[in-house]
Write a protein that binds this DNA or RNA. Structure first.
Lengths: 151, 151
DNA sequence: CCAATGTCAGGGCCACTGAAATGC
DNA sequence: CGCATTTCAGTGGCCCTGACATTG
């Protein structure tokens, strides 16, 4: 199954990048499921992936994820019902609410990040660490994402 | 706008790969639009990206794209209405139909591939060709996509 | 009065599952 | 008859635009 390479498009970066993203996403989902987080889907990444220990505002999350406030708000509501986040009034701004991970939310985030680290390590063991790091640096440079010097 | 890097997730390959895919896809759309193909959307790639000069069966396209026959069939119907493909009965198999690019369809496919080549060349000029080729080879190896020796 | 925050309502795109008609 | 190919019908996920109440 999956795309055979009997067509020229298979070599295009957009195809390779897309498939690689999908491969990581699917495996992440599988392992999260196996780890007891079967109710977490890929969409939820717009919250888990951009929220820090102190929580964040909806607007902030939406900006970081490149999505609308409405879209992220819907995800936040779902994660709230699942018990992964809570909404607290912002003491400094009556309009805003702080979206914060619950204890279980923190566990899920750590589990997800750990799985992603594992997957990258598996890639590194297949390709050699330099090639994986070369890819990360190349992508970060292209996208303008600063990678901290120390790792 | 776009994802700031004030969170650890920004360094994860899945985030970088996803953003890179989106960046290429959006720019492809913009340039196709500018080239007079404003009615072609990203979804159409499941046909344009996997169809050869002799056309292909629906089942074949679906397999290559990793989508269901129904999904690709809907795209094919839309592209047919737009005049980019035609459906011909398969002379060897009464059940099947051959989906083939029309003349305009071929032009569009060539235009799209040329734009993707241009975008990759622009990346190469920013990063150095070795780094882009290194990325392509790394991804192809990870995904099991054989890259032809020549090039 | 204007801007920012979050939410409600509605819609569109996309790809899925299920079921059917036809031909091998 | 079993299986492959295509298509019709229905559904759900996901993210959008627009409008609104509330607060800074």
């Amino acid at each position: 199954m999956q795309t055979p390479s009997d067509n020229p498009h298979a070599r295009h970066l957009i195809a390779l990048l897309d498939r690689a993203t999908a491969a990581l996403g699917e495996e992440l989902g599988r392992r999260l499921d196996a780890a007891g987080y079967g109710d977490i889907r890929e969409t939820h990444g717009c919250v888990f992936g951009h929220i820090g220990p102190d929580g964040a505002r909806l607007t902030e999350l939406a900006e970081r994820a490149g999505l609308t406030k409405q879209a992220v708000g819907e995800v936040a509501t779902e994660l709230q019902q699942l018990g992964y986040v809570e909404r607290l009034p912002d003491p400094d701004d009556g309009r805003a609410k702080i979206i914060r991970l619950t204890e279980r939310g923190h566990e899920a985030q750590r589990a997800g990040f750990a799985i992603l680290d594992d997957l990258e390590a598996e890639w590194a063991s297949r390709l050699g660490p330099e090639r994986v790091e070369g890819m990360r640096e190349a992508l970060a440079e292209l996208l303008g994402v600063p990678l901290p010097a120390g790792v």
